[in-house]
Nucleic acid binder design. Structure first.
Length: 503
DNA sequence: CAGTGCGGGGGGC
DNA sequence: GCCCCCCGCACTG
């Protein structure tokens, strides 16, 4: 592993961010002395420098579903985010989480994917496009130069995390295994549990309607079912989590898709084969807890978007909400409240973790908000490539139940309570938030309700380009997802070890 | 079959 | 010219 510069006081500042460079520069920093750890979930306007020996960097991997985009530059590989595939009805899984599939990279495969039904409720699947970069999908750039691989990301993902590639692959492998076992019934005892056997990867679907074994298998296999448990963790710090496909473990471990630890902040609403916690440290402000839902508190949550947004946001800035009556605020929040949304506090600068919180508004999920003029093209693209995209209120919202919402939020709030961060008296102003989210380049002055330290982070780089040139900026440390938040917070005195990951 | 990278080409600004 | 996107192709696992 290349030298790591994230262990010292400047651990929050990636090596790449310490240097002044842009992916388009004629000359890149020569002979970098250090390299950054590979980040699976880069989010925000960040830059990293990986070793050319870094396998993941060599493959230009990303937790986000990034597809190749032709930038007509043979030296710089450009990729744009495809967003995340969710259930159009925002159905809730047994554990309260929601489906968040990884969009297929291949256009054809993606179309097929969207034509399939939600494995949980059989309703349509919907692709939530990413438009975190001025209305366009977040873009990632890769450039190999000498012994370094330069990475630069532009935009803040405005959607939950999809299932990571490794998870998807692991799950598919598991499904195949299941398929194989299912189609060998002759060899199995009639009394041997099948669908319900603990090893059933679909055990997570215990809430789904009873299906014939074959149907269920098909369903699962076809849709590559996954739970938001993991994806919801737009937890930046998931970068801190070594993503591993521990199939053996998965297969052997059946019980629950996630484990509950004594420490609520360590809830792992993830399939056992997905992430591998590097340690409690990495789970500090872990968003996972926000995802975890006590079955008993899970009402018929049909408000996926709400929960999701919550999860996502919580995972992104739950720290701000630690002592906030999140549930109440969230529930009571309406577009007309005229209060600044969290997204406002979150700029597109380098405080990426906070993201645009497009889902924050239960009434008007960002993705359903009018696209900015500059986004028309993107919209067209979405329409042509995204079968499910529709500029209307999320169906789930129409059926949302306040109580359910509260219930969902309650559990999330609980999670956030375990986060080591102060709050954030905030005023929400959906309209503004929307505008900003839609046109980050035309951000209006960020309102500073209360003393949000993190806001500085956002304000530090009012312009997208700035982050790249404001070398040394205390806030360009903001790493991905929660990491950034944490990073900012750290600067405010909150002790935190961001880099706990070991690859 | 899907993921990935490359490159031609169209269209908007 | 730049950016976005679509599309097809070839290669790979």
């Amino acid at each position: 592993m290349p030298a790591d510069t994230t262990q010292d006081a400047d651990s929050l500042l990636s090596y790449g961010m310490k240097l002044t460079w842009d992916i388009n520069d004629p000359q890149m920093p020569q002979e970098p002395a250090h390299f950054d750890h590979f980040r699976e979930w880069p989010d925000g306007y960040v830059r990293f420098i990986y070793s050319s020996q870094e396998k993941k960097a060599q493959r230009h991997l990303s937790g986000w579903a990034m597809r190749n985009t032709n930038n007509h530059n043979g030296h710089i590989l450009k990729k744009s985010c495809l967003g995340v595939v969710v259930c159009a009805r925002a159905c809730a899984l047994q554990d309260g989480s929601h489906l968040q599939l990884r969009p297929a990279i291949c256009d054809k495969a993606r179309l097929k994917q969207q034509q399939k039904a939600c494995p949980n409720c059989h309703s349509a699947l919907e692709l939530v496009p990413c438009r975190g970069h001025s209305g366009y999908p977040v873009t990632n750039f890769w450039r190999l130069d000498g012994n370094a691989i330069f990475f630069q990301a532009k935009g803040v993902h405005d959607h939950p995390r999809p299932e990571s590639k490794s998870e998807t692959e692991a799950r598919r492998s598991a499904f195949k295994r299941q398929m194989a076992s299912f189609y060998q019934p002759q060899k199995r005892s009639s009394r041997e549990p099948e669908v319900g056997n603990p090893q059933d990867i679909s055990g997570n679907l215990s809430s789904m309607p009873a299906l014939e074994p074959t149907e269920r298998l098909d369903m699962i296999a076809d849709t590559s079912f996954s739970m938001t448990n993991q994806s919801c963790l737009s937890f930046p710090n998931s970068d801190v989590l070594g993503v591993t496909c521990d199939l053996p473990t998965f297969q052997g471990d059946v019980t629950l898709p996630f484990q509950k630890y004594s420490n609520p902040s360590i809830y792992l609403p993830r399939p056992p084969w997905s992430y591998e916690l590097a340690g409690p440290v990495g789970t500090g402000p872990n968003p996972y807890p926000t995802l975890y839902k006590d079955p008993s508190s899970i009402a018929d949550n049909t408000d996926w978007v709400h929960l999701n947004s919550l999860q996502y946001n919580v995972s992104s800035y739950s720290s701000y909400e630690s002592s906030l009556d999140f549930t109440a605020k969230y529930h009571g929040w309406k577009p007309t409240h005229g209060k600044p949304g969290l997204e406002e506090r979150v700029d597109y600068g380098q405080c990426q973790a906070v993201t645009t919180c497009p889902y924050y508004n239960p009434e008007l999920p960002c993705r359903y908000l009018p696209r900015p003029p500059a986004g028309t093209q993107a919209l067209q693209t979405v329409i042509t490539t995204t079968v499910a995209y529709q500029a209307y209120q999320h169906p789930a919202l129409k059926h949302s139940d306040s109580m359910q919402e509260v219930s969902s939020l309650a559990s999330c709030t609980y999670a956030s309570e375990n986060l080591p961060v102060p709050i954030y008296p905030q005023a929400l102003d959906p309209p503004d938030a929307t505008m900003q989210a839609a046109s980050p380049s035309k951000r209006a002055p960020v309102k500073l309700p209360g003393d949000c330290q993190v806001l500085r982070c956002a304000l530090a780089s009012p312009h997208e380009a700035d982050p790249f040139r404001t070398d040394g900026d205390a806030w360009d440390v903001c790493l991905s997802g929660m990491g950034s938040v944490v990073g900012c917070l750290d600067r405010t005195g909150q002790p935190f070890t961001f880099e706990s990951e070991e690859f």
